[in-house]
């Protein structure tokens, strides 16, 4: 069993979001970078759990990023990845990134490709689907549970107002969200072992990006809160009905 887990470097969830260069670039000053939480907490940890059940499982990590992505790759290795591949490219175009991951996946011959449900910076929810299409694999998105029985995966996925259970034969691409696994903290043995685990750097294949960011903007500031006395909550109900017209 070979699992490819796609990981992305994102700003920490508490990071202040600001832009530079005339609002065309994210301002990285003082930002703590983390593994995208969905990639780490759900995709990677579920892969590790599968390896704990079947020791012959190999977990490979892939990220598309510059050398500054290496600390998060080492952390993922410390959690339990066996080896990592960094595609040496810096891009925010989903198709470009997915094409690089698909190239790595083709050469590795994986049974499972795991991604997080989306990154918390670009929120595209796109890489898993694009990689699946480029590899011509079935794709189960927004998975909350994943069980394996031989080559049949039983996957629970979110639907509007509930969930559904589906079965699919490997190989398959899966995007993972809450429910798949519980977040873990790397232990000292894992951190020590991660230092010597293989981290291969490969150059990107030639692919044209399909999109480009013209500019960023911050949401307009709120006008300020209108406070109602706690003694007259019915006044709040009146305002929501007559002024805001939402109820």
């Amino acid at each position: 069993m070979k699992i490819l887990v796609c990981i992305s470097k994102t700003p920490d969830t508490t990071a202040k979001i600001a832009f530079t260069d005339n609002n065309t670039k994210f301002a990285p000053d003082g930002v703590q970078w983390i593994i995208n939480p969905y990639d780490e907490w759900y995709a990677l940890v579920r892969a590790i759990e599968l390896k704990e059940k079947d020791a012959s499982t190999a977990i490979h990590l892939v990220t598309v990023g510059a050398a500054d992505a290496e600390p998060i790759i080492r952390k993922a290795l410390a959690l339990g990845g066996d080896e990592a591949i960094r595609v040496n490219a810096d891009s925010h175009d989903s198709f470009y990134i997915a094409s690089q991951i698909a190239e790595v996946a083709k050469q590795g011959g994986y049974d499972l490709v795991f991604t997080g449900k989306e990154t918390i910076d670009y929120n595209g929810s796109s890489i898993g689907g694009m990689v699946a299409e480029l590899l011509d694999l079935p794709y189960v998105s927004l998975a909350t549970k994943f069980e394996l029985n031989g080559i049949t995966a039983t996957i629970t996925r979110e639907i509007e107002g509930g969930e559904e259970v589906c079965e699919v034969s490997l190989p398959v691409a899966v995007s993972c969200q809450k429910g798949m696994a519980e977040a873990r903290i790397p232990n000292m043995r894992g951190i020590m072992a991660a230092r010597t685990k293989p981290l291969k750097v490969v150059e990107p294949v030639a692919v044209d990006a399909l999109t480009s960011v013209v500019s960023f903007e911050l949401p307009p500031a709120k006008a300020g809160v209108k406070l109602v006395s706690p003694d007259t909550p019915e006044e709040l109900v009146r305002l929501l009905h007559e002024e805001a017209k939402v109820i």
Binding site: S94, F95, S126, G129, E158
Partner: peptide, 24 residues
């Protein structure tokens, strides 16, 4: 729609047609 189905299909279609996509 960038709903559950859209998130599954739109990126696949983007990759299949090599068509630029905006998600969300």
């Amino acid at each position: 729609s960038h709903n559950i189905s859209g998130k599954a299909i739109a990126p696949r279609l983007s990759a299949k047609l090599k068509a630029a996509m905006v998600a969300g």
